[in-house]
Amino acid sequence: MDKFIFFLVLFLLFSCKNEKTNPYIGNWYFDKVVNYDSTKVKFPMSILETEFAPHYNFEILNDSLIDYKQGFYYTISNKVWQAKERHEFLRSYYFLGSKTNYKIDKSNILFFNKFSNSWDTLKINKIWKDTMIIRGYENAFYRLVKKQNNYFDDKSYDAITIYRSPCYGSCPFNSTYIDRKGDLFFKPYSSNTQTNNLQSKLDSAQVKYYFNLFDKIPIQKLKDNYSIQATDSQTNTISFFKNGKIVKTISCYIQSPVDLDKAYSELSFAYQNVKVEFDDEFLFDEKVSLFSFINKDSKFRLKDSESFFLEVALRKGKQVKKEVDPKYTLKFSDWNEVSDISGITTDGRYYKILMKDKTIKIIDIGFNFMEKNPIIKKNREN
């Protein structure tokens, strides 16, 4: 008993000492720009907060490892797009992860930039308790606050889909699906390092890793839409499902909660970091623009990430022989208009697919999507 107390006291002393000697350990979030002097800073406050401030969100994990939440990317220009008799190189990105080594030098944080293979510096102006002031981009001062997050929920949803839209440039344009059983599906449309539809069966550690990114986020407390007044950028739409039911769909245009941004960014690049196989079982090889269920009275439109969930459900469904009640026409638009499908009717569970060669197949997705999701019959803000 005396030995136990002795070792317990040593442990507590060591923990207290570690906390005192390394006040940097913790989860740091950008709070606001302080000491802003418009005569010395050439950008308006709004640009500092939207373009530069996201770089100041990170977690110091221990005495040597930092999670730089923006992540590190290697850029390649290997695709050519032709328009109006001119050629432009489209970029693709390799995700290099977000965790890297760091060290403290004269109170500053030096972290190893995996993209440049060099050390970058976070210039600490002041740190006390749960507050840190960094002198950063444009010599402005950025205030960070340390927050502890004890939230965790792995029961509310069992599948996630992500849709990343095109933009005026070379944004990674794609869709990703993952579920807790380990199924991952990926469809690339433009500016990706793969050009084929892919699938993977993740092991338990991989499933845990990717879902943990989201499970620590209280998604039900997040807004349905995040955006700022700007043009030509990318929209990221994320949907969460439980047994086929839409739990939550969140749309992010430029602005996004920090941890959600990190989570969907990492998952959308998962295809680069897991073992994948070519997949030719999707009904549509190309991008499908927004499924809509149409009857004589109404049109019920799915959002992009919800459409991809239904597309995966059709991909995973079983072909059966059955009469289908054509309660709805499933409207679709094939991105490049190369599909062999001429029309789809459904009762919500069974989908009658008429091919252009006049053949028919019936797919059972295993549940009634319309009955599971009365939310799509509501007037939802896009």
Rank of each mutant, 00 (worst) to 15 (best):
I47M: 13
H55Q: 14
G26E: 08
T21C: 10
E19I: 11
P44L: 05
V9E: 09
F43Q: 15
F6A: 09
F43V: 15
W28C: 01
F6G: 07
V41N: 03
T39G: 13
E51G: 08
F14I: 10
F7S: 12
N18E: 12
S46Q: 13
L8C: 11
K40R: 08
F14A: 14
D31M: 08
K17H: 11
E19F: 06
C16I: 13
F43D: 15
F30S: 05
N18H: 04
F6R: 15
P23D: 04
W28E: 01
N18D: 09
P54W: 02
Y56R: 02
K42I: 13
S38D: 13
T50K: 10
F11N: 06
S15H: 08
E19M: 04
N35T: 12
E19T: 09
K32D: 08
P23E: 07
M45K: 15
H55G: 13
N18R: 12
K40F: 14
E19L: 06
E49S: 11
F11D: 04
I47T: 15
G26R: 02
N35R: 08
S38T: 12
T39N: 09
L10W: 05
P44G: 10
E51V: 15
I47G: 04
V41L: 06
C16E: 10
K20M: 11
F7T: 14
A53R: 00
S15D: 11
F58P: 02
S15W: 00
S15R: 08
I25V: 00
F7C: 11
F7W: 07
Y29E: 05
Y56I: 04
L12H: 01
H55I: 11
S38V: 13
F58L: 01
V33Y: 03
N18A: 14
K42C: 09
T21F: 13
H55K: 14
T21E: 12
N57E: 00
L12T: 05
V41M: 02
W28S: 01
F43S: 15
L10H: 05
D31G: 11
F58V: 00
F11A: 12
Y36Q: 05
Y29A: 03
I47S: 11
Y56D: 01
L10F: 07
F58M: 03
P54T: 06
F52L: 03
F43G: 08
F11H: 06
K42G: 10
Y56W: 07
D31W: 06
V9S: 07
P54K: 01
Y29I: 01
L10A: 04
T21P: 11
I25M: 03
E19Y: 09
I47W: 10
Y36F: 10
F43R: 14
F58Q: 06
F7R: 04
L48Q: 02
S38G: 03
Y56K: 02
P54E: 00
N18V: 12
E49C: 06
N57H: 06
V9F: 03
F58W: 08
L10G: 01
E51P: 01
Y36K: 03
N22E: 02
M45T: 01
V41A: 02
K42S: 12
V9G: 04
K32H: 08
T50G: 10
N18T: 09
L13M: 12
N35H: 10
E51I: 14
K17S: 14
L13S: 07
I25S: 04
P54N: 02
T21Y: 14
P23M: 09
H55A: 14
